[in-house]
Design a protein around this nucleic acid. Structure first.
Length: 585
RNA sequence: UGGGGCGUCGCCAAGCGGAAAGGCACAGGGUUUUGGUCCCUGCAUACGGAGGUUCGAAUCCUCCCGCCCCAGCCA
């Protein structure tokens, strides 16, 4: 944990000076109300100075960026306060859960960099304990077996404004309840025929307290416990116990569980067991995407996207395939903060985070996405030369590489305009530009085919400008990327755009989110021309195509014979802004 | 119209009675063999509204307004 950054150290020193006796484990990190609570608890010795958090996913879907926020929060707290962090599967509903999800979640959490050490845990491993606790509650007269079918339970629960009415089974004897519960467990009753309910208050203004169901009968095989159980605990019954059993100190969950906290507390209090505290924060929403697992599943099942790991998905696996790094995601999560107010974070924030990381680390290459042939008419027909190119101007240790230059090249088609707009620095008839690391060239002529389509540029070069500098000191404004036609290899490049074309696809009253899907969110370019060094690129490499964006080798479809690159994010493009502004005038 | 939350810059978000941090976005300028990066500069007399308490309020009190969540044998 050596976060050695002089600025951070400075801030740490300042903080330590302000409060000398506090170790200020939080220094340099963004502050938030949860950290305030923890620091207060540490001060008062509430949990003997312990901090123990957990990330408790249900294995019923893939993790997304919203989960990353929770993981970073929980893990970050444990790390910064010298505490512990558990990865615990909240696997209490066998009909929705599967091993596939368990495995993907483990992979994603690990990839993000959270360390649960040896504490990979499953709520299902506590089922015996839960059952013993349930028996305790029955013995205390605080729980009963109810024979009401689901509809009746709903009817007798009352409404938001009217109280519910007691179940006719509410006052069974302890002995009868014990016997019935045992027979429920042994499988004597069909699904849905009975439940175990907490005996709280059918008139409570908090609907969650109106004798909530603790166990339901489900004759289904569980991914972990197999057929051992046919009664499964409900979330409210199980969750606090899981936290208690694991000695969690701060049980952090999202806002919608705020109304459940009295229940969380009630179970633990009645049982008189170790009692962690539940703290709620606002889940992450990102503009131009959706975060609900159910809706993400629909995108997958209805074929709007190519699986959970489609690079346009906000899933961790999608972002990974898109080329996002754990560093970028962590920085993003640190910066969006943690609070109780619901909000929609601008996706530009995420894009900023990935650009920031990749700018420092990605190796630069030249790749022409929409090739336009260029012939350097005064360059010797059979000459080849190798020019030096810098691998990463942000990192000297990245070194240099050789790029082959020849008479016939490709440049980007949209780097040429027959009629140059104002402030156009690139190629146009008569204009001189620099080919990066190569020569200054001047466009003499654009050759068209019978349809008027430009098929080739005839240019001349200045041999004195080798490497890209002019000895006479004359300036050119534009520098273009290029690739030698003879040496380039073909690759497929996939350009991604936001999956939805409105900021809040989930926010419309009449229209469903699928109506806002951006039809141009994926653009596949087939015959891109890449510089030879790129042939060695492999999955996981951090790559920039100069002047265009950050790219990665697609982990799903790329092969040696048929390389596929994904665009992670474009570079910021101030020319596009200028052009847009001119258009708007 | 029951209960629980939340309202500070276009988007996030600090602030916890002494007088509005920071990031993103945006705008302008400088450097530049990526119109990238980097570096400067600007960007809430104002904290949902109205009253009140106070020498002093985004921070305390009152009322009002707006938004979100809850009536699964989902989590």
């Amino acid at each position: 944990m050596s976060r050695s950054n002089s600025e951070k150290d400075d801030r740490k020193r300042i903080k330590e000076k302000e409060n000398p006796e506090a170790p200020a484990p939080n220094s340099g990190k963004p502050t938030n109300f949860i950290r305030a609570i923890i620091e207060e608890d540490l001060k008062t010795g509430k949990y003997d100075g312990r901090v123990h958090t957990r990330f408790p996913p249900e294995p019923n879907g893939y993790l997304h960026i919203g989960h990353a926020k929770s993981i970073c929060l929980n893990y970050g707290l444990a790390r910064d306060y010298n505490g512990k962090f558990n990865l615990r599967f909240d696997d209490t509903n066998p009909i929705k859960e599967s091993e596939e999800y368990v495995n993907s979640i483990i992979e994603d959490v690990r990839w993000l960099g959270a360390d649960w050490e040896n504490r990979l845990l499953f709520a299902s491993n506590y089922f015996d304990k839960f059952y013993e606790y349930a028996v305790d509650l029955v013995k205390k007269g605080k729980a009963y077996v109810c024979d009401l079918p689901p509809e009746k339970i709903r009817e007798t629960r009352g409404t938001l404004t009217e109280p519910g009415v007691d179940s006719p089974y509410r006052n069974r004897s302890v002995e009868e309840n014990l016997d019935l519960l045992d027979r429920m467990r042994r499988g004597e009753f069909p699904d849905g025929s009975k439940t175990l309910r907490a005996k709280i208050d059918m008139a409570s203004p908090n609907v969650n307290m109106r004798d909530p169901v603790m166990y339901r009968i489900v004759h289904a095989s569980h991914h972990n416990t197999g057929d051992k159980w046919c009664i499964y605990p409900m979330y409210d019954w199980a969750h606090g116990l899981e936290d208690s059993i694991e000695n969690i100190t701060h049980s952090i969950c999202t806002l919608e569980f705020e109304d459940h906290r009295p229940l969380y507390d009630w179970f633990l209090d009645e049982l008189e067991v170790y009692h962690p505290q539940q703290i709620e924060f606002a889940r992450l929403n990102l503009s131009y995407t959706i975060m609900s697992k159910r809706k993400l599943l629909k995108l997958v099942q209805d074929g709007y996207v190519d699986g959970w790991d489609d690079p346009r998905m906000p899933t961790i696996s999608g972002l990974r395939r898109r080329g996002y790094t754990p560093v970028a995601i962590r920085n993003f999560c640190d910066r969006i903060g943690v609070a109780k107010r619901e909000s929609i974070v601008d996706v530009a924030m995420l894009e900023h985070a990935i650009r920031e990381d990749l700018n420092k680390r990605a190796t630069r290459f030249m790749a022409v996405l929409n090739p336009l042939k260029v012939v350097i008419t005064n360059y010797p027909e059979d000459q080849d030369e190798l020019l030096d190119a810098i691998n990463n101007p942000e990192d000297e240790t990245a070194g240099t590489r050789k790029v082959p230059f020849t008479r016939v090249l490709y440049v980007e088609r949209n780097d040429f305009r027959e009629e140059a707009p104002k402030k156009w620095y690139r190629l146009a008839p008569g204009r001189e530009v620099r080919l990066r690391y190569a020569y200054y060239i001047t466009c003499q002529e654009a050759i068209k085919d019978e349809n008027g389509e430009i098929v080739e540029l005839r240019c001349t070069y200045d041999p004195a400008t080798r490497g890209g500098d002019s000895p006479d000191g004359r300036k050119v404004r534009g520098t273009l990327h290029w690739v030698s036609a003879k040496h380039a290899f073909d690759a497929e490049v996939r350009l991604y755009d936001r999956l939805f074309n409105v900021p809040d696809p989930d926010g419309h009253k009449e229209k469903g989110f699928t109506e806002f899907i951006n039809p141009d969110s994926l653009q596949i370019l087939k015959n891109c021309k890449l510089e030879p060094s790129l042939a060695a690129a492999k999955t996981g490499d951090l790559i920039q195509f100069e002047r265009q964006g950050y790219f990665c080798v697609d982990s799903k479809y790329s092969t040696l014979e048929h390389p596929v690159f994904n665009r992670t994010v474009t570079l910021r493009d101030s020319w596009a802004k200028i052009e847009q502004k001119m258009k708007n005038k």
